[in-house]
Computed example of a mutant assay.
Amino acid sequence: MKTLVNKHVITLKKTPKTLLLCYVVIYFLWGMGMNRFGTEMEIARFSHWWQVITCYILYMVPISILLKKYSFFEQYAYGLVAMGILEFLGYWLQTSYIYPNNILDKIFNPQNFSLGMALFFALYFPAGNWLVSKVHSRIFYKK
């Protein structure tokens, strides 16, 4: 277990600073936008705005970096596990707020809400890695 953790720490440390900056900026803006969307549509929101930093930057960015070498489906599968844990803890600890009778509850029923959220947000890992790769290569590798 210790060697696995050390391997992941080394991978994160080897990440170019420019790539890390792209991840942080893109995921922060994405997180703020999704939190705002969830609030405006009265679906769900963080209890505090700064949770965008803890969830999107401190949790999702390192996972994205570790998953970027995998295929789309592997990123999604691993991302589903990561987001399942995050969604479960967010609602259990009440650091995320679910609006009662929101549109997703009406479509899928309340018992499926957190599962639906995990299934949706797991797409962030392959989509985020693709987006960051495109933005990073356009900005830092112009010829």
Rank of each mutant, 00 (worst) to 15 (best):
Q51K: 11
N35L: 01
F37C: 10
I107T: 11
Y56S: 04
S47R: 15
L86F: 06
V25Q: 00
E87P: 02
L4C: 08
I85F: 04
F125Q: 04
K7D: 10
L29H: 08
T15F: 05
V132L: 09
N6Q: 11
I26H: 03
M60H: 05
V135W: 02
T15L: 07
Y91L: 00
F121M: 08
L104R: 02
M60S: 05
V52M: 05
S71W: 00
L89E: 01
E42N: 12
S133A: 14
Y78R: 09
F108Y: 09
R36P: 00
T15S: 07
M83A: 09
S64R: 01
H136P: 00
K13E: 02
N6Y: 09
I139F: 11
F72N: 08
L12W: 06
F46D: 00
Y99E: 07
E42H: 13
A44C: 05
S71N: 13
P62T: 06
N6F: 13
A44G: 03
I26M: 10
L12S: 06
M60N: 06
W130L: 14
F73V: 09
R138S: 14
M83S: 13
L4T: 10
Y124F: 14
G116V: 05
A77V: 14
Q94T: 12
T95L: 03
E74L: 15
M41D: 02
K7L: 12
M83C: 15
F108H: 07
A77F: 07
G84I: 05
S96I: 00
Y76W: 12
W130E: 13
V5W: 04
K17D: 09
Q94P: 04
A44D: 00
V5I: 14
S96F: 01
K14R: 15
V9W: 13
L89S: 08
N101S: 11
T11L: 02
K17F: 08
N101C: 10
Y56F: 15
T3Y: 01
V24I: 15
R36T: 12
M60Q: 07
N35W: 01
F46R: 00
W30K: 01
K142E: 06
Y124Q: 14
G128E: 08
T39Q: 03
N101D: 13
P100C: 03
H48A: 10
K69W: 09
L119G: 05
P126C: 12
V25T: 13
T11H: 08
P62W: 06
N35T: 10
H8A: 11
M34N: 09
Y99I: 02
Y27I: 00
K142P: 02
R45M: 09
I107F: 11
Y99A: 08
H136F: 06
K106I: 06
Q111I: 10
K14N: 14
G33I: 08
A77I: 13
L80M: 13
I63L: 03
Y141C: 03
G79E: 08
K143M: 05
L123N: 07
M117D: 02
V5L: 11
S114R: 04
F46T: 02
F113K: 04
E74D: 08
L80G: 12
K134R: 12
H8Q: 07
Q75M: 09
V81P: 04
W92I: 01
W30H: 08
T95P: 02
F72L: 14
F140Y: 15
W30I: 02
Y70V: 00
N129P: 07
A77K: 10
F121Y: 12
A127I: 15
V81E: 01
E74C: 11
I10Y: 09
F113M: 04
L21C: 10
T39P: 00
L58R: 07
